[in-house]
Amino acid sequence: MMDSEPVNAIANATTILTCGDNYTYICLCGERCAFVVDPTDAAMVLRVLDERRLTLTAALLTHHHADHTAGLAELKSATGCQVVGPDARRIVGIDRLVRDGDTIELGDRTTEVLATPGHTRTSVCYYLPASPNAGPGSVFTGDTLFVGGCGRPLECDAHVLWASLQRLAALPEETLVWCGHDYTAENYEFALTIEPDNQAVRERLNEIRRAAAEGRPSVPSTIACEKATNVFLRAGDSTVRAAVGVGDANSERTFAELRRRKNLFG
């Protein structure tokens, strides 16, 4: 098991935990209540719950991969939390199986389930709309959308992942993006191999490097920021198509070529 200390960062009542390059999130959902997203390390989560005297009511899983579910059994045993996820066959211990369009009541927050296949066949994201008490909305994207990047299409063709990314890009622009891994610097370094003269991407990379040097996480981003600087979300832009050299190819083909090149890059 990877080990790291939690990052002391709370935004919109969301506590960020880092475990290697994995991100896990503990989110307040009422007085002294919280839910967790993709618990990699149970001990880290339990320590924060104890320090903040919180009761864990639910664990939300974006997909079945072990680096997102490794702490699940211990957390459920220790807290009795409800386990919510999209794949009962490959996630042991699910109490509530969710599908696209489902809503989950988590204390004073309502979460909408968005099916986002691509990285896996059953990947989902969890969207919490904006509210007067909690501020801008949040979306927990697992390995579908990263800051500056996207996941590998492991169980689907690239066009399936592209469609899922377009669904996320349609969320309100102020929506906070909380992803499953910190591959951010590498993602922007790759983007500069496609558009070396893109000043917005270069500035974003410098910003991310400064944050890392100061011990700050790369999350949250926003949908607006991702639409402006994430080369994968910009596969439909004529400048990206020209840089990739696919001519008049459609966005799906451009995206597939970007993803192929990123696989080779790292």
Rank of each mutant, 00 (worst) to 15 (best):
R121L: 01
T193G: 03
P172V: 03
Y183C: 09
P132G: 05
Y188A: 13
S123Y: 01
G215W: 06
D197I: 03
P136W: 06
A200N: 08
S221Y: 11
A211M: 13
V160M: 03
P172Q: 08
E203W: 09
V139A: 06
G148W: 03
V160E: 01
A130Y: 05
A211Q: 15
V231P: 03
P129H: 13
N206V: 15
H159G: 15
V231S: 04
S164A: 12
A169W: 00
A200Y: 00
Q199H: 15
L192I: 08
V139N: 05
I208R: 05
G137P: 03
S218M: 14
T144Q: 08
Q166S: 13
T122F: 01
A224E: 13
D143C: 02
S123G: 09
S131T: 11
P172E: 06
D157S: 10
N133G: 07
D182W: 11
R209T: 13
P220R: 01
G215M: 08
N133L: 09
C179S: 11
P172I: 03
C150V: 04
E173T: 14
I194W: 00
V231T: 07
N230L: 14
R204K: 10
E195S: 12
L154T: 07
E189N: 10
P132W: 09
A163W: 01
S138V: 11
V231K: 01
A228L: 13
Y127T: 02
D197H: 05
S218P: 06
D157R: 11
L168K: 06
G137L: 08
D143H: 07
N230K: 12
Q166P: 03
E195G: 10
F146M: 13
R121Y: 01
L154S: 14
F190N: 00
A130I: 08
V201P: 05
P220Y: 05
Y127D: 01
F140C: 05
R167C: 01
E174W: 01
P129K: 07
Q166T: 06
C125N: 06
Y188Q: 01
T144C: 12
E214D: 12
T222F: 14
N133F: 13
P129M: 08
G215F: 13
E214C: 11
H159I: 11
K227A: 10
A211H: 10
T122A: 08
A213V: 08
V231I: 15
V139R: 02
G215K: 09
E195P: 04
L205C: 04
G142T: 01
P220F: 04
S164L: 00
H181Y: 11
L145M: 05
V219Y: 10
L145Y: 03
G151I: 01
T229E: 07
N230E: 00
V160H: 02
R121G: 04
E195D: 15
G135A: 07
E186S: 15
A191Q: 05
W162Y: 15
T144M: 13
L192P: 02
T193L: 06
V139I: 09
D182M: 06
Q166L: 15
R121V: 00
P220T: 09
V177I: 13
P132C: 07
T175K: 01
F140I: 04
E189M: 09
D182I: 10
A185K: 14
T122I: 05
